[in-house]
Structure formats: C-alpha cells, structure tokens
C-alpha cells in the first residue's frame, strides 16, 4: 500500500525522483508505448466500435487501470515513487510550482509552442516526441490558451459534477445529461460554459495535451490522478450509487456492444469495471 500525494506537497527530492523515473521510462521506450495506447483507444461516439476510454461510462475505470500500469512501471524502477495528483481547483496559475524548473517545466512561449524549460525541454536531450500528429519533435504547451483565454475548472464546477447522484445515464455517450461521468469528463454543458472539468483542463494546458497523444505531456498523469481521486470523492458522496450500466443493455439499444457494462471485460486488460471500483489495498490518496 502506497500513497499518491498532492503534487504541491512533494519535497524537492521526491520531485527529482519522480522526474528521474519518468525520464528513464522515456529512455527505454516504455513511455511511448503508453502514449500509443491512449491514442489507440480514443474512439469518438459517432463510430460504431467499442468505446472504452472516452465518451463512455468506463472513462473512470479505464483511466484508473491505465494509470496503475504506468505507476507500476515507475515503481519497478524506483519503489519510492508514485503518481502525484494535481488539484487544478487550487493550483490554478502558470506560476504554480507545478510548472517549476525542477518539475513539469513551463509553458511553450513562442508561436511554436515549444516547452523550453524544465526536464522535458527538448534541448535537454531527454524528451523527444515520437508519437504525434504534428512535426514537432519537442513537447508543446500553451497554458491558459492566450489566443482564446480560458480558466481552469473551479471548486464550484467540480462540485456540480460530484453532486450528481447518477454515475452515468443513457445514451451513455458525450450527450448524456444528468451523468456524473459526463459532467466530470466534461462534454456536458455547465450553464453558459460549453466544456467543463476534465476536458477543460486538457484545453487549458494546450499543445500536446489537446490531442489523442496527450500523455506525451507528463502532466497528463498528474491530471488523471486527480480525476481518479474525484471518482473516490463521488463514491463517498453517493454511497448508494454505483457504476452504470450495471446490467447488459437491451437488444435494441444502439449503445449495446459500444459501451461496457459493469461486468464486461475491458480492453486491453480484460478486467471489468466492477474489479476497478476500489483501489483499497493498492494505494491511497493523501488528503
């Protein structure tokens, strides 16, 4: 049993060890396999295929297992390391220590969006992008999206999602309304705001984080550790609610075979959402 800490509480030595383990996964090729996996499993909800990672109820369990795999790879290298979480409702500024020289590095300043500070700056020689949709071989970011400014989700916006008692609801995709999953994933409209929570964080960071190869940016893991923690908070807030759909969908349901019910095996691991409801005994979150 180990602890995932709030990134703002990491000591300088812990930051250094986390970064060193990530750089080693990059060096030995493991890291880019993770990037490919995320991209491969992004299936939009207009398509007929099975959606596991996005626009579907298994958004939470899929990313939980994905992060666990990544964390296991890190801990094989250094058993003192775990994935820290970034609470974007409190650490809201590009000047936050999250984006410090010894941790994630800062934004991409020029028109080329190139991150040129911190351990993941291309010029340091340790962070070559090999999986992406652009020519950029360097990590890109655009914090706060200056050409069309946005702000990170607020505590109030997060509460709007967590207060929702229904885990998910038909049509089980990006159109679902009254769905905790869709309010947190962020396709659900929040008042005047078209996007929310998880999606908005990807947009706020910009660069690689807005695409299917988002894990090219190591902050991806810190963002999704917080998403994972939010699932815990929702469970604690609604002890009577559980993963939906719980039972196989009706024969005529157009989402049958396109989303996972609680006991369906989830690719690429063949574990069920039910098996990932709890992480008790594996890790806990620092509060």
């Amino acid at each position: 049993m180990y602890t995932r800490q709030n990134q703002k509480n990491l000591t300088s030595a812990q930051r250094k060890r986390f970064v060193a383990a990530v750089l080693e996964l990059k060096r030995n090729g493991t890291y880019d396999e993770f990037v490919r996996t995320h991209d491969r499993y992004f299936v939009p909800d207009d398509e007929d295929g099975l959606r596991v990672g996005h626009m579907s109820p298994s958004f939470f369990p899929w990313h939980r297992r994905y992060l666990l795999d990544f964390e296991r790879a890190l801990r094989d290298l250094d058993p003192t390391v775990s994935v820290p979480y970034w609470d974007w409702t409190t650490d809201r500024s590009p000047a936050s220590s999250l984006w410090g020289e010894d941790f994630m590095g800062g934004t991409g300043r020029g028109p080329d969006r190139k991150v040129d500070t911190g351990p993941f700056a291309h010029d340091r020689g340790n962070w070559e992008i090999t999986v992406g949709v652009t020519e950029a071989r360097y990590l890109t970011r655009n914090l706060g999206r200056p050409h069309k400014p946005i702000t990170l989700p607020t505590a109030e916006e997060l509460k709007w999602a967590i207060d929702e008692p229904a885990y998910d609801v038909s049509p089980w995709d990006s159109r679902a309304s009254g769905s905790f999953r869709n309010k947190l994933e962020g396709w659900a409209r929040n008042g005047a705001e078209r996007w929310s929570n998880h999606n908005k964080v990807h947009q706020w960071i910009g660069g690689h984080m807005t695409g299917g190869t988002a894990p090219n940016d190591p902050v991806f893991w810190l963002h999704h550790a917080f998403v994972d923690l939010i699932w815990d908070r929702w469970q604690a807030r609604h002890p009577g609610s559980g993963y939906l759909p719980a039972a196989p969908l009706d024969r005529w349901d157009r989402q049958r075979g396109r989303v996972l019910t609680r006991d369906d095996p989830m690719p690429p691991w063949n574990v069920t959402p039910a098996q990932l409801m709890s992480h008790k005994g594996i890790y806990r979150y620092e509060v």
Partner: peptide, 13 residues
C-alpha cells in the same frame, strides 16, 4: 489556433 506555427505531420498517427 492551437498549432501556432507548428506544421501537421505529413502522415499523421
């Protein structure tokens, strides 16, 4: 807007 001056890859992933 998002790309800035970055070019798309000739053969995207």
């Amino acid at each position: 807007d998002e790309l800035g001056s970055v070019r798309l890859a000739a053969a995207p992933a």
